[in-house]
């Protein structure tokens, strides 16, 4: 196999992130290696084939590089999820607190209070788990970050459901609450970002196990 053909195969198999650097280094390496083989008497084509053999099968090299890239991507996913959970404070608290009219009751109805507590508690659980996932992503146990992120998404979804139930109950008491659509969009955005991060990390988890 020629060096160019090998590099083309490697390019196809490599993850997109960091590909240019890897290919540049591989090309330098293969050219040097071929030159060494030529120096001991091999013809050009034989020298290139020997350099490619020495470098190793493209699928093996690409798999090990992909595993290395997967570590970085898992870290990014964990940070995205952490940011998404932190952002959830806006639909859960900041928007309602700043746009709702004064509460029409002297004492908050018990079901509304319970729904508030459940929603906030689930959000806090999601926050703690997201922090754990981010911490794991920076250790040798980074492959466990993805399952934790899936749990973070589930906790955030449960918090959203509790908040939605709260909205319905609140709306029944005070219909004039135009901030709810904004809160809903922000909550959906947080949840979507978190779910995408978890899915992304989960897909990379397979590579981390192989490493």
């Amino acid at each position: 196999m020629t060096i160019d053909a090998y590099l083309a195969e490697l390019e196809q198999r490599l993850p997109r992130i960091g590909r240019r650097r890897v290919l540049a280094e591989a090309q330098d390496h293969l050219r040097d290696s071929a030159a060494r083989h030529r120096a001991v008497g091999l013809a050009d084509s034989a020298a290139e084939a020997a350099a490619v053999d020495d470098f190793g099968p493209a699928h093996v090299v690409a798999r090990r590089l992909a595993a290395e890239v997967a570590v970085r991507e898992t870290r990014i996913a964990a940070l995205v999820a952490l940011a998404a959970v932190a952002f959830f404070v806006f639909p859960l608290y900041v928007v309602p607190e700043n746009t709702l009219p004064p509460a029409p009751w002297a004492e908050k109805p018990r079901d509304i209070a319970v729904l508030q507590q459940v929603s906030v508690s689930l959000w806090l659980v999601a926050g703690v788990l997201a922090a754990v996932s981010a911490a794991l992503a920076w250790t040798r146990w980074s492959r466990f970050a993805a399952p934790v992120l899936v749990t973070v998404s589930a906790a955030l979804a449960a918090s959203s459901l509790a908040a939605a139930a709260l909205v319905l109950r609140w709306f029944a008491v005070t219909p004039a609450t135009p901030s709810w659509p904004l809160a809903g969009v922000l909550a959906a955005g947080s949840l979507l970002a978190c779910a995408i991060a978890a899915t992304w990390a989960h897909a990379r988890g397979r590579l981390l196990v192989q490493d």
């Binding site: 390496h29 470098f55 190793g56 099968p57 493209a58 093996v60 595993a67």
Partner: peptide, 9 residues
């Protein structure tokens, strides 16, 4: 005498 490409990861 390593599989040289595996040094990079």
């Amino acid at each position: 005498d390593l599989a040289e490409g595996t040094v990079y990861p």
